[in-house]
């Protein structure tokens, strides 16, 4: 049964003149992994900050577990786990203390907290570092501790703000594996990310946000099929007659000047035809990805 765990109805957040989130509506089902994507300043972090009470809503209704966030913040926060973007590991405490002290904020009795902390550190392959301090650990380890700490209260919803930003490939895969396993256990997850491969790999459904609004929402595979197609033909230094041919054939494409991207469900025949006739230097046909969708919808300009 489709049971909503988060429901946002026309939620807005403004800071003076600046509109960070503009009348956004979405819903997350129990057991679902839901991703929020968007360029810098799209409103992703603000949206999730509203869920855990860091940013009061300017307008709209936001419910978590069926409870209104503006009135039941404490009850909601007792049932969620949050991994913030910043490193919030307490450097004054050891790793195990970070977990047990955190458990105390949830009024979890000490014996249970210690058992749970041990279990979580083992799950994150960090049990050998229980008595280290955060400053002695690598970025990947710190991120896993934040994740372990967010799970100490056995949350029903896990909120992750850019869980793998700044991590190396090995560390990213370590985090993904843990998240996969949590997902299999039925945990609901809401995450924001800049990485399209992360979203494709982890998320059942995503929204792509830009300038405080939701541009699209759906399953990653469906969004790719809908907005790009099956493949992308990538041609560097395209010749003028190729441009003319593509116009004539009414193909979906994007012209980046020195590179041409042709979207669609191409077959090998067309690929061979174009590559033989127009591209003596060769061109590439590859599978369409979420990144193509993202760049097509949010543009290629820098957001700074």
């Amino acid at each position: 049964m489709w049971e909503p765990i988060v429901e946002a109805l026309q939620i807005s957040k403004t800071y003076g003149e600046l509109v960070a989130v503009a009348e956004v509506s979405f819903a997350i089902a129990r057991g679902e992994c839901f991703g929020s994507l968007g360029p810098n300043g799209a409103g992703k972090t603000t949206t999730i900050r509203m869920i855990y009470g860091f940013s009061p809503l300017t307008a709209g209704v936001l419910k978590v577990f069926g409870l209104d966030v503006s009135r039941h913040a404490r009850a909601i926060k007792a049932r969620i786990g949050v991994c913030q973007q910043d490193n919030t590991i307490d450097p004054d405490l050891t790793i195990i203390q970070n977990l047990t002290v955190f458990a105390r904020y949830f009024n979890i009795p000490r014996p249970l907290a210690v058992r749970k902390a041990d279990e979580l550190l083992r799950f994150m392959s960090l049990d050998h570092r229980s008595h280290s301090r955060a400053l002695e650990l690598s970025g990947g380890m710190v991120r896993r501790i934040v994740l372990a700490r967010a799970l100490i209260n056995q949350p029903e919803l896990l909120i992750l703000d850019e869980p793998t930003t700044g991590l190396g490939p090995q560390s990213r895969h370590q985090v993904w594996e843990r998240l996969d396993s949590l997902r299999r256990q039925g945990l609901s997850i809401l995450l924001t990310t800049h990485y399209m491969d992360e979203a494709s790999r982890l998320c059942d459904r995503i929204i792509i946000m830009d300038q405080g609004r939701i541009l699209v929402q759906g399953k990653p595979s469906e969004l790719i099929r809908e907005h790009i197609g099956k493949d992308v033909l990538e041609i560097s230094s395209p010749a003028t007659d190729l441009r003319a041919y593509i116009h004539l054939q009414k193909m979906a494409f994007e012209d980046l000047g020195d590179r041409l991207l042709v979207y669609g469900d191409h077959d090998d025949h067309l690929y061979r035809y174009i590559s033989n006739r127009f591209c003596p230097e060769g061109c590439v046909m590859r599978t369409a990805t979420l990144e193509d969708v993202f760049l097509k919808l949010t543009g290629r300009g820098l957001r700074e």
């Binding site: 855990y52 913040a73 926060k77 949050v82 913030q84 919030t88 590991i89 955190f102 904020y105």
Partner: peptide
């Protein structure tokens, strides 16, 4: 610097 309050605010603490 340590974001200790930020971490606390994501728990039931006000």
């Amino acid at each position: 610097y340590q974001k200790t309050f930020a971490a606390m605010m994501a728990t039931p603490l006000s």
